[in-house]
Structure formats: structure tokens, C-alpha cells
Amino acid sequence: MQAAPHLSSLHDFDFLVGNWRVHHRKLKERLAGSHDWVEFDGTCSMRQLMNGWANVDDNVMSVPGSAYRGVGLRSYDPKTGLWAIWWLDGRDPFGNLDPPVKGHFVNGVGNFYSDDTLNGKPVRVRYTWSHITSTSARWEQAYSPDGGKTWETNWVMDFVRAI
């Protein structure tokens, strides 16, 4: 007999559907002891795919001197109850997709993890979604050089719903 699907997290990203203004705060250098941040604005437009089992967002990042786009793609696995999130960077659209971060929400906070490399060294990656309301949300990216013992937040995105 097949196990019942986990559907309790299927609607976790419904809050993100629509258009957003986004304020970015990004470390100039990751895992280098940097305290220099670059701040810039952007937009995000997200829509559901496959009747809610997946979604995609188109992001415009107005980085001074080097504006670019990126795409976030998410899909839900009813066997595990986990979301997988991939990132496609518009500066290298024919390059590889980043390894997907996988996770779920607990008490309104979503944590998603993967293993990747930075400058040839292994890092653990964490995305965190929090502070979610009908008109705002926060996304953070952090890297760990020591398998998750310590984390450096290197990118923060504050979302405000566009009218």
C-alpha cells in the first residue's frame, strides 16, 4: 500500500503569489569577515504552476552598475512534505542551476538547506523565510563553512507587496 501524501505544506508559498517591491542588503564578500554591505532595490513577481505544486518568480535586482535578473523555481514533494528551491542567475543563464535547497515551514518560519561550494570550498547553504504577513516577508541567505555549526548571513531581502 502506498503511503498517504503529505499535503500540509503544499500551500506554504501561497503568500508570495503576486508582485513585490524588494529591498536587498547583500555582503560584498561572503565568508571573508566582511562587514561591508551593498543595498539596492528590486522587484519580484511570483506565480503558481501545476495547480500549486510548483511556482516560479522573476526577480529584477537593480544593483548599482550591474542590474540583473534571476529566477526562483520551487516544487513540492508530497512524499516527503519538502519544498525544493532552485536559483537561475540571469548573469549566467546557460550555467548550472544552483543545487536545490530543501526544507519546509515550522511555526511560520521556513528553513531550506543544501550543500554547495564557494571558491572551491564546501559550504552549507540556508534560506530562511520569516516575518510573513499578507503585505510583507523577509528572505535571508546564510552560508556555513563548518557544516552548520556557525552561519554568516550574507543576503537579506525585505518584501513589500506592490499595489
Rank of each mutant, 00 (worst) to 15 (best):
Q2T: 15
A4T: 11
A4Y: 02
P5L: 10
H6P: 01
H6I: 15
S8Y: 07
S8H: 15
S8M: 12
S9M: 10
H11N: 15
F13D: 13
F13Q: 11
D14M: 09
F15M: 11
L16G: 11
V17P: 06
G18S: 07
R21F: 12
R25W: 11
K28E: 13
L31Q: 05
S34M: 01
H35A: 12
H35S: 14
H35T: 15
W37F: 03
V38P: 00
V38T: 08
V38L: 12
F40N: 02
D41R: 01
T43Q: 06
S45N: 14
M46R: 13
L49Y: 07
M50Y: 07
N51H: 14
G52S: 11
W53I: 14
W53S: 15
A54Q: 12
D57I: 02
D57M: 02
D58T: 01
V60N: 05
V60D: 11
M61Y: 01
M61I: 00
S62Q: 14
V63E: 13
P64E: 02
P64N: 05
P64S: 06
P64A: 03
G65K: 02
G65Q: 03
G65R: 03
S66G: 10
A67Q: 04
Y68D: 08
R69M: 12
G70P: 00
G70T: 06
V71M: 10
G72V: 09
S75L: 00
Y76G: 11
Y76P: 11
D77T: 03
P78G: 13
G81H: 01
L82S: 00
L82C: 01
W83M: 07
I85Q: 04
I85G: 02
I85C: 04
W86G: 03
W86T: 08
G90W: 03
L97Q: 04
D98V: 05
V101H: 02
V101A: 04
V101E: 01
V101R: 06
G103H: 11
G103D: 09
G103I: 12
H104G: 15
V106K: 06
G108V: 12
S114W: 05
S114T: 14
D115G: 13
D115F: 08
D116I: 06
T117S: 10
L118W: 13
N119I: 10
K121E: 11
P122Q: 09
P122W: 03
P122E: 05
V123M: 05
R126Y: 01
R126G: 04
R126N: 11
Y127A: 12
W129V: 12
W129P: 07
H131L: 04
I132S: 06
I132V: 06
T133E: 08
T135Q: 14
T135G: 08
T135K: 13
T135I: 10
S136L: 02
A137H: 06
R138Q: 15
W139H: 13
A142I: 10
Y143V: 03
G147K: 10
K149Q: 11
T150C: 00
T153A: 01
N154W: 05
V156G: 00
V156I: 14
F159P: 03
A162D: 07
I163D: 13
